[in-house]
């Protein structure tokens, strides 16, 4: 018996051609979407690398006079962004201290009590929180902290604004990660006579550690570059400030300040590059952790 191929050779050629065409279109579009990132990186490195020296990390931002002098002598603008780096570390660190425990507990609650009015309400509120413009959070922190608590602009107020910003991503990543853990693990622990709270803390959380910490780090990297809420709260400072009740600088605030001073405008590129590198490293860290701590069920 002769078996004939139901697809004629001409049709087959047409299919192969279509297949190739589709691949080419896909690759082209993927490349187009990568262009903005690549060009940003290129611009920042091209214009910023000259500024990046050791002193850029150890000295505080220069004032206009120093910059004018340096320019007149055709020298690189002196000083660095140490006040911004320290400020960012303190503000983001404190924001994490507030948001991580709160976000973890809320995430556990949402995944454990996954039905019910209260749960739906909390989930709705968290989703709404994600959509609130960051400048509005700055206003809120201004009303909550700047006026009544520190009676003036402060790093603390900045941390509160940023902590609200990072909360949703921690809550949702905790919830989603915990939901993916098979219920058989929880049953295993409970059947050994382990109380419920210990089951959550000692079995579920460690098992979901990879996903949860990835969510936390991505949350941190998201707020590290925030500027608008800090303008209304931390304000900025020309010196390194370790007192959380006092105004403080931050890298994105410095970028804004440099932009507003025509003599310092060259420093924008260096500061932006450092900020981008920090966020880039945080993302790499998140990737590495999710790979390293990945749990096999």
């Amino acid at each position: 018996m002769n078996i004939t191929n139901p697809i004629s050779s001409q049709k087959l050629k047409w299919r192969i051609f279509n297949d190739k065409l589709f691949s080419i279109v896909m690759i082209t579009f993927a490349f187009i979407s990568a262009i903005p990132l690549l060009s940003i990186l290129y611009q920042l490195v091209k214009k910023g690398y000259k500024q990046i020296r050791l002193s850029f990390f150890t000295e505080v931002a220069p004032d206009t006079m120093e910059a004018i002098m340096a320019k007149a002598n055709h020298e690189i603008i002196p000083g660095g962004i140490a006040n911004g780096i320290v400020g960012t570390i303190i503000i983001v660190g404190m924001a994490s201290l507030i948001a991580i425990p709160l976000g973890l507990i809320t995430g556990i609650y949402l995944s454990e009590a996954s039905k019910g009015k209260m749960t739906n309400m909390v989930r709705f509120v968290v989703d709404m929180l994600q959509g609130i413009p960051s400048i509005v959070l700055g206003v809120i922190a201004y009303i909550w902290i700047v006026k009544p608590v520190t009676s003036g602009f402060s790093a603390l107020a900045g941390s509160v604004a940023l902590s609200i910003m990072m909360l949703p991503s921690i809550v949702r990543s905790t919830e989603e990660t915990l939901k993916m853990i098979p219920s058989t693990l929880k049953e295993a622990a409970l059947s050994l006579g382990v109380p419920y709270y210990k089951t959550v803390l000692k079995v579920l959380l460690p098992t979901g550690m990879s996903g949860i910490s990835t969510g936390i780090i991505l949350g941190i990297s998201r707020i590290a570059g925030e500027t608008a809420p800090l303008m209304l709260t931390a304000l900025g400072s020309s010196a390194i400030n370790l007192d959380i009740t006092q105004p403080s600088s931050a890298i994105p605030l410095l970028v804004w300040e440099f932009y507003n001073d025509p003599n310092l405008i060259d420093l924008i590129w260096g500061a932006s590059l450092v900020l981008l590198l920090i966020i880039f490293l945080l993302n790499l860290l998140a990737k590495a952790i999710s790979k390293k701590w990945k749990v096999q069920y």
Partner: peptide, 20 residues
């Protein structure tokens, strides 16, 4: 129930050792 489950152990359908 916590006391009880220490006296009556259980093994499940799918092996479920703690992965961590």
């Amino acid at each position: 129930p916590i006391e009880l489950r220490r006296k009556i152990g259980m093994v499940f359908q799918r092996p479920n050792p703690f992965p961590t």
